[in-house]
Amino acid sequence: MSVLSKRPSLNKMVDDDMEDYSEDESAFDSESESESEDEEVMLTEPSKKSIYNRDGLLERLQDISWPDNVEWIHKLTIDVNQEQKVDVNDDLTRELAFYTQALEGTRKAFEKLQAMGLPFLRPTDYYAEMVKTDSHMQKIKSRLLVEKKRIEEAEERRKAREAKKIAKEVQAQKTKERSKQKKDEIESVKKWRKQRQQSGYPSGDNEDMNLPFEDGKSFERSQKKRPYVAPGDRSGGKGKQGGGKFKNGMDKKKKTRDHRDSKFGFGGRKGMNKQNTSDTTNDLKGFNKGDFSGNKKRKR
């Protein structure tokens, strides 16, 4: 009963009647903490009843231990100093401590073995049964490969994402630069005009110089939308085609005709739609490729 320090209070609680719990209100907090306990539990303080027979232990040790003059080669034991205290719950440092212990021990042992002139590593052409079977090692290998591949893929994806981000930034920078350049040019032209004006060339003198780009617009196609007009159609679109000539009777028919003409084009160039370009001539999509059986027949 005395083993767990928290025990007595707990025990009492269970043995108590259910009704008289009024005094134990404060115990709630302390007990709820103890709920989240691990599998591994150690006592905080050593129990006093435990047996420790020092002499008996040493006597038994004397009984079983090998004679003192036994050579090291029979035992193969190495003591390695543990530098720091290792925290058990920190997996990484714990494993590292074991690893360093093993490594140091092996170095010492190998030095001893070498001093004795004994072989200690198997030659490359020495084949014998291993602890793990080949099929098991194959499994391990395949798992390692899969893991490696996964890591590589993740790395690639990450790189692509970053590259994309950078590209976006670069693009934004470029457009900004371009617009700035444009602005500067316009500014410079304006400046030049002003200078000209000031230097004595009156604006009325040369009206042609009043170019359209001077008021901030560049040489752009007019963005005016022409409704229902094919891109290459120069007929002028719906607005230019004679409306109002026939006011009755034929009017309705004419209207639909007009509409269709404006939509599908009538007169003017056909927008280069039906002419071959280098792309269309090189495009063999429409032909059956590779099937020359007909030709062969003809040859025969």
Partner: peptide
């Protein structure tokens, strides 16, 4: 993986 039956080196802290 290691040889089956090779003698281990025992390291103790």
């Amino acid at each position: 993986n290691h040889l089956k039956g090779s003698r281990p080196i025992l390291t103790f802290s």
